[in-house]
Nucleic acid binder design. Structure first.
Length: 271
DNA sequence: CCATATACCTGGCAGC
DNA sequence: TGCTGCCAGGTATATG
């Protein structure tokens, strides 16, 4: 369910509450995308220093290393004092002196992976290739435009790839391209510098607004404090095939790109 | 090295 | 009520 805004809202909803806690127990249920990579019991006694985010990963810093949490397509976290028995899709519990962090993930594309340090092979394998953070001030036009010019792929795929800029998933890629007025089928290396800047600002804008709204465009998103965010941000194009463009009234189109749906307005977005 | 396809899973929904 | 087929927020890995 999660793109950058949902992951960040999740982080904000429990980072302060879990910081300083001590791990009292770890339970791993059904297999996720990757194995934990260590003996769950070896984490007991570790202290939780804090929670950071890198792209769509949450990094829970422990005294013994770090845990990388990824929500995949359908994952969500809950951090609470409720220690009742896990339900069918509750696959990881990190119990602490300040609450229980529980991963629920019906499709199990998510994962929790232990890495001894941020420079370890385990962490680098997952994080090493990631591009810049769009909301941390380092998302500069020069590097972004230079990166686009090296890619012959269509722009939508470059955004999803996460090697230039992280956090943009299938929904926000369509939305950002609409805001920038760029057709998702446009080759990345044919995007002019001014249009690249428009896209850069659109990405920052749409992601920052979604974080600020505390949620997303997702119908079933809920953060780790259990608060749900239902369609607080109105999508311009995503999931609106056949409906009128909110700007010009033309019917929104849906196409397939890399086995995923892409939505765009044929009038507002130029090749 | 580059671009594209595949694989991993479960659940919800439309249509019959 | 079923049943079937399609669709869904991600991304490492395989393949051409």
């Amino acid at each position: 369910m999660p793109e950058l805004p949902e992951v960040e809202v999740t982080r904000l909803s429990f980072a302060d509450r879990i910081a300083g806690a001590r791990v009292t127990g770890v339970r791993v249920g059904k297999p996720l995308r990757w194995p934990l990579g260590c003996d769950p019991q070896s984490l007991v006694g570790s202290q939780v220093h804090g929670v950071r985010r890198r792209g769509k990963y949450l990094l829970v810093d422990l005294s013994e290393g770090l845990l990388l949490w990824h929500l995949g397509m359908s994952g969500s976290l809950l951090f609470s004092d409720d220690r009742s028995a896990p339900l069918v899709h509750d696959h990881v519990d990190l119990d602490t002196t300040q609450g229980l962090l529980r991963l629920n993930d019906p499709r199990r594309f998510g994962a929790v992976v232990f890495a001894p340090s941020e420079n370890s092979a385990e962490a680098v394998k997952l994080l090493g290739h990631l591009g810049v953070e769009p909301l941390h001030g380092g998302f500069a036009l020069d590097a972004f435009h230079a990166g686009l010019r090296k890619r012959k792929t269509v722009i939508k795929q470059v955004l999803l790839g996460g090697e230039l800029v992280v956090g943009v998933g299938n929904i926000y890629a369509s939305e950002a391209l609409f805001l920038a007025g760029i057709r998702p089928t446009t080759r990345a290396d044919r995007i002019s510098r001014p249009r690249a800047d428009k896209l850069r600002l659109a990405i920052i804008d749409v992601l920052a607004r979604a974080v600020k709204k505390g949620g997303s465009t997702l119908r079933d998103f809920s953060s780790a404090d259990g608060k749900t965010g239902y369609f607080q941000l109105e999508a311009h194009v995503y999931d609106r095939v056949g409906e009128p463009c909110r700007v010009c009234g033309t019917a929104i189109r849906r196409i397939q790109q890399g086995q995923r749906s892409t939505y765009y307005c044929p009038i507002c977005q130029k090749p």
